[in-house]
Design a protein around this nucleic acid. Sequence first.
DNA 1: CTCCTCGTTCTCGCCGGAAT
DNA 2: ATTCCGGCGAGAACGAGGAG
Length: 617
Amino acid sequence: MTDNPSQPSPSPADSLQPPSATSACSKCGTVNQWVFCSGLTTPRNWGRWYQRCSKCNAWHWWPREPLDVEALPPDVQYRMAVEQSLQTANAKEKGIVCGNPGCHGKRKSKPQRGNVACLSDPKLCGTCCQSNGGCGLAAHAPVKTARPSPIQQKSFARPPTPAFSQSFTNSVLHASPPQNPLKRKYQSDDSADDGCTVDFHIWNKGRSEPIKFRVPHSRGARFILKAQIEYLKLRDVHLPDGLIEYYDPLARDWINMPITIGVDTKSSKVLYFRVPGVSDGVGFPSRGDRATSATPDPVKVAPPVNSHLMQTPYAPGTKFPLTYTCDMAPAMRHMIDAMKSYREDNTCLKAELAKAFPGIDIKLATFYRHRNHFAKADKAGIVEAFERAGWSAGGKWADLVAAVERLNRARSLSLSLSPSSPPPPSPSPSIPEIVAMHAVLQRVWRTFDDGTAGCEYYEDHLFDAFITTPPIIVGSRKDIFSASFDTTGHGPEVNCLAKQFRLTDDLIHHADQNNFEKSFGNAVSFSIRDAASFYGGDTALIKFHQFAYNQDVEIYNIMFANTFLLECPSVDGAGPVWLCQDIIPATTKLWSEHANIPTRPSSKDNTFLSSIIFKAC
DNA sequence: CTCCTCGTTCTCGCCGGAAT
DNA sequence: ATTCCGGCGAGAACGAGGAG
């Protein structure tokens, strides 16, 4: 992709800069410097200059009005889109009451409060939601109600090519049972290593941080970098001469060698490579560096899992939670173990807390909150990655908590699907440096008995793709797979319209249309853009709406299918790429509620939704 | 059956830091 | 100075289990 949203945008043209570096405050006359606004808090302000008067605190902006949305760089538009998409999900709804008019909740003297986390519409209290069959929220799970499995659901999204589809099939669907391939249940010592993966880091040109990989590989077998060449290409690591520099932990020095040479995986947990010519970087093992040969990571390493609990009180003033996962995790494990038995052995929670976190005053509500975060993170298999990062920036407990919350959001969205709607994407606004995740429903692409083709979804096979390197979107395609003029759907008519539009605007490329218009009589499928540009699709969509409007056709509903290819280790090692499909239900009722379609690009609220996908790092 | 205790969940509101 | 937002604690409420 040419526009990587994770890269900072360049400054706007010089013509947008204020006439001078300083100017006098219009209120008090104090001379202040202009500061470029990078839009960190409010992306919409990107590209403007601001000054806060050092004397009267007055604010001044240059230019006075924000730039046009279209003038903002793609990554800023992306951030705006993410921000907008999360507004609804994060909106704090205070003081809601149960949405069931005949609420039979247990609060007698006051109206029963609804649970803001409830996924039903309207939001219900736990009692009403449970009796309604539950909403997907764990606390609202219906009691002793068997969930039908699998839930079959047809989707019109499809893999972009058979080759990628095959890789997806091999790596995901044939994995049994479906679970996070990198998940390792913590154990009391280093034997937790399942021996099926190898971590290696590469320092590439033009980047101080190493690129971290975890790949399927039998520990003990010699590791040949050439076998990972596809991974390397995806991360822009190119070795034209077939040479690499390898840090030999025994010799404690860098050696230059061909990538076809196998290296020992027993003497160090992480293999370090650098592209020839790179001589420095973050965490770089230097010549004679003992740490890299004896320990798995160049950062300060955490003590062995569960090796001990803190015996002496923490320093006065130490607050809960502790800053680093490597400190929190052993104590949390102790608590979880202790809480399984404390009813029997006559201890109590407070006493166990005092053992696990000596000297720290912990409020119970806070402890439970963090214990739940730990349990979820452990279940998802991400604790170890944070633990291994030790007392470094990559091992912060707060980041683990944030990762769990992102996962929760992704799951909530997946589980809140109505039976007839396909799964929405996991809105991951940011992804930690070390661990990325993506909620994926198991699905099978096949031909049905009636001759149509589509996907079957298995709701109870929701699993998370965890990867130790940030994902890269290596390709994407956006298809409209459903469009209608009203609530009933009139696909063929829209299809006809799309054909006409195709003749007028080559931004739209039909994809297998002949097959699809026959198969899905009330649906239309055509690609409106490809991976070359994230935002061209929106432009095409607006043009399509405009075109339909000019034809006296009002589009009621459009839904998108997005297909992404993410770099990710596969379970069986067969391929370096997983296919992760997402479908975005961007129902555009906007056009049914207003007589006029949006004519200004900045009015594309709904089409913005189509840009909210998955963050490329 | 009622009451009590303890553990747990959830909401509300305060606080402080960051951004502007 | 103001706004926003995340973290945290207080407190209400619920549930399980035990004692009387």
